[in-house]
Amino acid sequence: MIPEGELLRSRVVTDLATALEDVLDRHLDGYAVLAPRETLLGAADGRGVLTFEDGVPACAYHVETDRGGPAALGDVGAGPYRFELYALEAAALEIAHDADELRVPPGMPAERLAGDPALATRTRRRAGVDADRPDDGGALEAFLEDEATVERIRESARREARRRAEEWGLGDALADRPDG
């Protein structure tokens, strides 16, 4: 649906707010491909696409879940991400931007995915919507509806906690957990 744009940058970002702010400051027409860490490690195809009009987030789509809008932001989940930014002329994005089911409220990626309310307010102001009305928790809700992803985060944290406990000499302080 979206033709390939001109790759501007590709890097791993832990702070998505900085990346989104850069897009806003550039007044970019184009899109970003976000791949969470799990995808970087070769797991599921968890890439999400976020398009921009004049630097303002417009649409979101998630490849693996085939969902759009706030749900796709939830599917993208927490970082760090491989963040690839592409420039693409606005006309080439028109078809995607006409698809209502893909639209996201302009401030929502900053508000819920990047956790930067000030950037969300700035973004809404640029978009000409009520800057002081925060977006609802839609993206977060979608994230929490995905029990498998939440369970993966918990499992991974459990493993990390145990591994680090051994590294830090805290192994004796670990509790016996049946699922540990």
């Binding site: 927490a78 977060l140 944290a157 957990r177």
Partner: peptide
């Protein structure tokens, strides 16, 4: 927590660390 995906995700990690230490 805050009502953001990274904050909740990190909060889940805190929980797992805590439970790991009883």
């Amino acid at each position: 927590l805050q009502a953001t995906i990274p904050a909740v995700s990190d909060g889940l990690k805190v929980q797992e660390y805590a439970l790991s230490y009883g």
